[in-house]
């Protein structure tokens, strides 16, 4: 008779997997350019012009317009572009199938992946903020607590969208393409290429309701110490919940 007892991989196994996923990310140097390098580039290109001009509550255009955009770019690139492309690679190469025949569940891989990309997001944001403060005299948000909360909500919303892409894309390559198009589409409507004010009225409003624009607007308000509008929080929360739901319904491991 078999004496096998269901044994689940313990904490040691989780930490090993997280460490392995982190090594995968660090060794894929090109993958770090977009989430860490692109926001820094946008920051540096815009910061010197925006740094001195005070708008309200001792906060400059750098604080109110550039940093919210830079932070949102970090969360969106990691959530919408990197996450689905990593999953696509794992699926295409059979890594998930291989893990499916071990006691580790593929869900473990997914969670380890999220932990590692969270660390990336935090590093990307911290680096951008440090450069903004040290080189261009940026300030902390007036409402620091809410600002941190909005970044967290923004991360949740972008990951959920990324998971939808990973779940619905018919092929691995299309996951990467859809992620890129999604990122630039949401970005274009949300102020990635200049203020939304220059967009036609209905598009500007739409952009504000979509998660990229909502994240930028909400962060901007928190930075200025103004009340954050419910529509922006709602947009991020609905994206997170709806996205997670759709992804869970349609997700497949191979």
């Amino acid at each position: 008779m078999s004496t096998a007892v269901a044994h689940r991989p313990g904490l040691h196994s989780w930490l090993t997997l997280i460490r392995c996923e982190a090594k995968m990310v660090v060794r894929d140097t090109a993958g770090l350019v977009v989430p860490i390098g692109l926001p820094l580039l946008i920051l540096v290109m815009n910061a010197s012009a925006a740094g001195d001009e005070e708008i309200t509550a001792g906060r400059t255009a750098l604080d109110l317009y550039i940093l919210p955009l830079v932070f949102t770019i970090v969360t969106a690139t990691i959530g919408i572009i990197n996450m689905p492309s990593f999953l696509a690679y794992y699926r295409r190469s059979g890594i998930l199938r291989r893990l499916a025949v071990t006691p580790a569940s593929p869900a473990m891989v997914l969670i380890a992946q999220v932990v590692v990309s969270l660390i990336q997001a935090i590093l990307g944001i911290a680096l951008a903020f440090a450069v903004a403060v040290l080189a261009f005299g940026a300030h902390l948000p007036v409402d620091l607590g809410p600002a941190v909360g909005i970044v967290a909500l923004s991360i949740a919303a972008m990951y959920a969208l990324g998971m939808v892409v990973a779940a619905l894309a018919p092929t691995p390559n299309s996951a990467v393409a859809i992620g890129l198009v999604g990122f630039f589409g949401l970005g274009a409507l949300g102020g990635l290429f200049g203020g939304r004010d220059s967009l036609p009225g209905p598009l500007a409003t739409l952009g504000e309701w979509l998660p990229f624009g909502a994240s930028v607007e909400a962060l901007s308000n928190a930075w200025a110490g103004q009340p954050v509008e419910a529509v922006h929080l709602l947009s991020l929360a609905v994206s997170a919940v709806l996205g997670a739901g759709i992804a869970a319904m349609f997700f497949r491991w191979d």
Binding site: V5, H7, K23, G94, I95, R98
Partner: peptide, 20 residues
């Protein structure tokens, strides 16, 4: 869960984390 503990499987065409 119990079967995964006692059965080892080598799959055809399975790839592993390439950078590890």
């Amino acid at each position: 869960g119990a079967v995964r503990q006692v059965l080892g499987v080598q799959l055809q065409h399975a790839y592993l984390h390439g950078a590890l």
